[in-house]
Write a protein that binds this DNA or RNA. Structure first.
Lengths: 169, 169
DNA sequence: AACCGAATAATCAATATAGACTAATTATAT
DNA sequence: ATATAATTAGTCTATATTGATTATTCGGTT
């Protein structure tokens, strides 16, 4: 669903062939989605069957054939429906961290502090990455802010656990 | 991976049959995971093949047969390995909201404010739910705090967008 | 006492996703 | 000049996930 939205959203700016679509996702959206190449092709095929995109094969020079996808009128309507639903909705996220923290006490208490410090470092590292993005990119402003907000929340959450649980080491 | 951790973590407190496992997840972990019943059975089967859990079928009274799962020694070791990795690691989350906000401008500008207000209400509602949980449950303290932190981050993020993008309505 | 809905317990077929693979072309380095 | 690496483009198989379905039993109701 969200993946359909993603692909249709890109195609809203004009037709594109599968390979370029995937390169685009990989280069400019890598931090915001985990959509893989083969899944993208699969969803495009499925959306072609449902009439949301049309597909023509073309070849340029002696390169292999490419499948050029274009969003259709029903596809545009469907995209807007998905988009409105997503903008007005809230899809509860489930975090792997929740599960492992729930079982935290099953690891020897002496280790906990060190382990959480490892997590902390990784959060800080990712936070730095996003702060750099902030300077470079323009359009994705809100998205970057969103991710930064969540990373900051994670950071102070880990810090609060370190404070409470870190005494015994 | 995180789902294996979840199932093994429950089994660390003693053997349990499939149905009860799933009821347990549904009743006490519903907010923190989206693991479905059939997926749980699948993962248990897979972990049985790998020797992390053993499985015996038993029947009580005239009820249908149940598969009782018990974690093995290799299973406990594997669980601790997963747990350490998860506690010390950070798995980047990708949010559906990021995608739809990235395409926000493809919806008529006049609608944006109303749509985002819808999202805001849903965030607030969920936040209330978690705040109630806070009183009832004891052990899952950090998990609840984590979710509350993220919901608050979402809330002030939506508010910042409402402030910037809501003028034109 | 017969019926209906909920609970118990799991299975199955269909769909979605990931990761490895193919196969040609162009760029790079020795 | 030629071996090697990277790029282009997409496919294929294996695995994970979901939603629907089955089939029995228990508890309450009229």
């Amino acid at each position: 669903m969200i993946r359909q939205l993603l692909l249709l959203g890109i195609l809203m700016d004009g037709k594109m062939h599968g390979y370029r679509l995937n390169e685009y996702i990989k280069h400019t959206m890598d931090f915001y989605t985990d959509l893989k190449k083969s899944t993208a092709y699969y969803i495009l095929e499925q959306m072609e069957k449902e009439g949301y995109v049309s597909c023509e094969t073309e070849r340029e020079g002696k390169r292999p054939e490419r499948r050029v996808y274009e969003i259709t009128k029903p596809g545009k309507a469907y995209f807007l429906e998905l988009l409105r639903n997503c903008l007005a909705g809230y899809a509860p996220t489930s975090y792997g961290d929740d599960i492992c923290v729930a079982f935290m006490d099953k690891v020897p208490p002496a280790e906990i502090h060190t382990l959480l410090e490892g997590k902390r470092r990784k959060i800080v590292a990712r936070l730095e990455t996003f702060k750099e993005h902030k300077r470079h990119e323009g359009g994705w402003k809100y998205v970057i802010n969103h991710n930064i907000a969540h990373l900051k929340a994670d950071l102070s959450w880990v810090d609060s656990m370190l404070k409470e649980r870190g005494k015994e080491s």
